[in-house]
Design a protein around this nucleic acid. Structure first.
Lengths: 141, 141
DNA sequence: TCGTACTGTTATCTTAAAAGTAACAGTCTA
DNA sequence: TAGACTGTTACTTTTAAGATAACAGTACGA
C-alpha cells in the first residue's frame, strides 16, 4: 500500500470515538489502534494531528485518554480531511519550463486552475457530511 | 515521486495535440514526449490507453503519428481521467473484519458510500471542462 | 515521591506503487 | 525490403507511505 489511507483511518478513529461504546467516549490510543487495526504508533501520530486541529481532546499521564473535542454533528469530514493533511487528489507533474512551446508555457497555470476547482468541489462534498451522520448510520442494527 | 501524474501528463499530451501547432495536429510519440518532458516509452504507454479509450487516433508503421480522435470540444477531462485509469482520490484501509465491535463492522460500508459520493462530485467537476477550454485558454497570448 | 500507564515525538526500516529505462515485436510506406 | 514509427512487456530505480520501535514528557495514585 503506497496509497494514502490516513484519511480513512482518521475517519474510522473519529467514528469509533463518536460511537463511544465504553467510558463515555474515552479511549486510549492502544484501544483505538486495536479497533482500527493499525499500528499504535501510527494511530498516535494521526491522533496528534487531530488533536492539534482541535477535533479530539487528549489527556496525558496515567489514565490518559482521547475523546471528541466537539459534538459529532459539529465535525465535518472536511475538518478531518484537513486535519490529517491528506495529499491533494491530483498532482501536476513538474516541468523544466520548456523552451519555445506555447503549450508547455501555459498549461501548468491552466491545469492548476482546473484542478483547483476540482479539488474544491471535492472538499465541498466532504463538508456536506458530518461525523454524526456516520455515527448514526453505524448505530443502526 | 510516488504520486500519480499520469492524469496530468495525459491532459498535457491531449492539449498539445489539440493546439496542434505543426502538421494539423499530428505528432509522433517522441515529439510528444519531448514536449511533455517525460520518457518516450511512458508517453507511449499513456498514449496507448488514450487510444484504446478512443480519444486519440494513431497510425502505425513508417510515418506513423498521433492526433485527436474527436474535436477538442467533445472531449472532457473526465474522459481523459477515465482513460488513464487514475487511482481513486481516496483509498479505504483494509480490515480483517474485527470481532465484536459494531463500528468496525459497519464503518467500511458507510465510508464507501460517502467516499463514492465524493468521488462522484469530483468526476462531475471534471466532466464540466472540455479539452477545448484548455486549448483556448492556452492559445491566449 | 516514585512507579506506572499513558501521550507525544522522532528516527529508522520495510514495502509497494509509480515512473524511468530499454529492448523488441508488429506495422506500414516509401 | 529497409527504415521509421507504434505497441507491449520486462526490468530497474525512486520515493513516499506505513510499520516498528525506542524514548522523552506527563500526571495519577498508591
Amino acid at each position: 500500500m503506497a496509497v494514502n489511507t490516513q484519511f480513512s483511518i482518521a475517519v474510522h478513529m473519529m467514528a469509533t470515538l463518536g460511537v463511544g461504546c465504553e467510558r463515555n467516549g474515552e479511549m486510549t490510543s492502544s484501544e483505538l489502534a486495536e479497533s482500527v487495526n493499525a499500528a499504535p504508533s501510527f494511530v498516535r501520530r494521526v491522533l496528534s494531528k487531530l488533536s492539534k486541529a482541535g477535533l479530539v481532546q487528549t489527556r496525558t499521564g496515567k489514565s490518559g485518554a482521547c475523546s471528541l473535542a466537539k459534538k459529532a454533528k459539529d465535525i465535518t469530514l472536511l475538518d478531518i480531511y484537513e486535519a490529517v493533511e491528506a495529499p491533494k487528489a491530483f498532482a501536476i507533474h513538474s516541468y523544466p519550463n520548456q523552451k519555445a512551446c506555447r503549450v508547455s508555457c501555459n498549461i501548468k497555470h491552466t491545469m492548476e486552475k482546473v484542478l483547483d476547482k476540482t479539488q474544491a468541489s471535492m472538499e465541498q462534498s466532504l463538508a456536506g457530511h458530518s461525523l454524526a451522520e456516520l455515527v448514526n448510520e453505524m448505530k443502526k442494527p
